[in-house]
Design a binder for these strands. Structure first.
Lengths: 220, 220
DNA sequence: CTAATTATTTAGCTTTAGCTAGAATTTAAT
DNA sequence: ATTAAATTCTAGCTAAAGCTAAATAATTAG
């Protein structure tokens, strides 16, 4: 079964929206996630339903099928492997990789994916700390909490970010809060939810609640 | 000015056909080069004319413009750089790279091309021995002749092949006639145009005229 | 130099993926 | 429980890129 590039993008968006908590994924949600109009989404949902990658009943909602799940994870796997390639091998900054990976993920060649995976040494996480599914779609994800939810004196390691906008990633780079950095919460301000943290045992930085909410920590 | 993937493919085909000798490129030639129908070609030529990458007068013929040339060479550059990547880094066999490179060449990102070029150490030739244009479209090509045209006792180095079909490339692999191999013509049979050559000073092989015609040699 | 053949182009259809405008359905609010 | 609002879907249009069939131009042959 073959999906077009557009279909892959829809399926990926649906998968991500399904993961991110809520009940069921709405037509409007997909439209805004994918930067298109609800009418176009309706139409595509019908097609994806026919291809049996989702189960779709109009006005009701949708659900990804096991087949759809597998295909979505394949695309996500490719996207994240390419991100690792771009950062590790071509020295892209982590805020420059998204658009390019968005194109590369649609290249069709199982051999290419296998070889790339091997070449990168079978990475388990992408540069943003998100897990890379294996060829069967299995994901080993680490339990992690938002920095905002940590208590005073708790420490851990930055493993991922929720927001991947270039502006946010550049900000993190500037303050030295890269993936893998070891941090410790020194203080929390009740009033505005901001936190003071120690990065890599040397630098003390101050973070607003909004920022701290978008940084995921593997506690230790 | 932006070209679609289809437009890039047509332009590339036109460029290659222009190079390969003849007078002017025909609609039929393009159709068979690109595996499509003449009617579709006519239509695309009109569009490429409007975009000013070719000069086109119907029934008369076409000519690539300097702009078209630049764009075609950019695509060829990307194709060949990716081929180097696939062979050198991902250990693809040289007969496995074409289809994948055909997809990768359409990825849009100047940063990516620059970084890839640097990562591969600014290669000047692809795995088939074809020259890789630089970012300005300049090509340093070496003067070379078909193995078939060499005289007895003349020697040189295999630098390219004209035919890149998997069948041909596999045949070459089998007999050990890879790019870079040093060869010497031991004998030529007038009757059928076949040649006997010594490869890398150790193996003697026998080649039909057809094969020898498709192997390009840098004489020494 | 017509006539036949071949090459090329045009017209009109198909599919994919978007869009707008308007209809239908569900949800919310008085 | 109706109406109002929001959501979702349908119909019909557009653009790209292909196709077939038919028309037109160029070339070759007798």
């Amino acid at each position: 079964m073959e999906l077009t590039t557009a279909e892959e993008n829809y399926l990926k968006a649906i998968y991500h929206l399904s993961e991110e908590g809520q009940k069921s994924v709405s037509t409007n949600d997909i439209a805004s996630a994918i930067q298109t109009k609800p009418a176009s989404v309706s139409d595509m949902l019908r097609k994806l339903g026919e291809k049996e990658v989702i189960q779709y009943r109009k006005y009701y909602g949708l659900q990804i099928t096991p087949l759809g799940m597998r295909l979505a994870l394949q695309t996500i796997r490719k996207h994240r492997l390419w991100e690792v390639f771009l950062v590790d091998k071509l020295h892209f900054a982590w805020d420059e990789v998204h658009e390019v990976a968005e194109q590369l993920e649609h290249i069709q060649s199982t051999l290419l994916v296998e070889r790339l995976d091997a070449y990168l040494n079978y990475p388990k996480f992408d540069p943003h700390g998100d897990p890379i599914p294996d060829e069967f779609g299995d994901v080993r994800s680490r339990p992690r909490i938002a920095l905002q939810e940590m208590g005073i004196d708790q420490s851990g390691q930055i493993v991922a970010v929720k927001d991947s906008s270039p502006a946010f990633l550049r900000y993190l780079d500037k303050v030295g809060a890269y993936i893998g950095a070891r941090i410790k919460v020194l203080d929390k301000v009740e009033f505005d939810g901001s936190v003071e943290i120690l990065v890599d045992q040397k630098k003390t930085i101050f973070m607003s609640k909004d920022v701290a909410n978008n940084i995921l920590i593997l506690t230790s």
